[in-house]
Amino acid sequence: MSVADSIRDRVGSDSDPNDGAGSGLKLATLLTYLFLYGPILVVVLMSFDAGRYGLRWDFTTEWYASLATRSDLIGSLWLSIQIGIVVMIISTVLAVVAAFGLSRFDWPKRKGPIATYLIFVPLTLPIIIYGIGLFVFFTQLGIGRGFFPIVVGHVLYTLPFATLVVGAGVIDLDRSLEEAAMDLGADPLTTFREVTLPALMPNIVAAALFSFTLSFDEFLISFFVSGGGAVPLPVRIWGMVRADIEPEVYAISVVVLLISIVIAAMATRLRRF
């Protein structure tokens, strides 16, 4: 290695041609992105394809046009949005409360970690187990399937994610701001409203957006507890894919992907890396 090279190393430049990313590494990275986005691109292509699978591609927008006539799909889309909004509100409020509970207060030794684990158990157990359990639970209660069981399932499913996002903000929060407010005469409630809440707002909004998109895309829990006229869009799409005769499935999927990608992109930007 030349003197120039070692100087460049020492000032921390990344432009060293010998030690920079090899072309193999760049190629592998590129291929991974292709792997991640290829199938999404395929869905978009298929939604504009008049024929079926294969390399032949004839442009058409007829599937999007026929979406407008599918009242079942539009009804399910609207239902998924409604469920998503209700779940988002409940989950975010609970997440803010739980995040403070987990990170702020002096727990008796050992109880703090137990509370943390309890909240995060739903992240570990298979979702299918929870979906089936919830189905059995609501059947036993005589409530059966429908809007309420779906909302309950989605709240429990999104809550750990939302709590993590808000909790990260609570941990990062500069407590001297709150102390300064208190020193200046603000009571705890005013401090929370005027200082803590605004500082946490990016995390809270991100948690809300994540909760919405998780609920909007959730399939397995809905699969077991939906019914009685309340069929969310992913369950409807599942039926279309299983039947394999409805080409509109790609068009409605593009609509779903657009909604989730826009919301996920907004939420990821809000979150600090």
């Binding site: 390399l55 895309d217 999927s253 992907l257 990608i261 992109a265």
Partner: peptide, 27 residues
Amino acid sequence: MLVIIPFWTSYLIRTYAWIPILSNNGF
């Protein structure tokens, strides 16, 4: 972010997207 975003979209759709890629008359 480009890695994260697909993660937040419907895995159901991302899964069946493979059918036209992998099937006998697929891509």
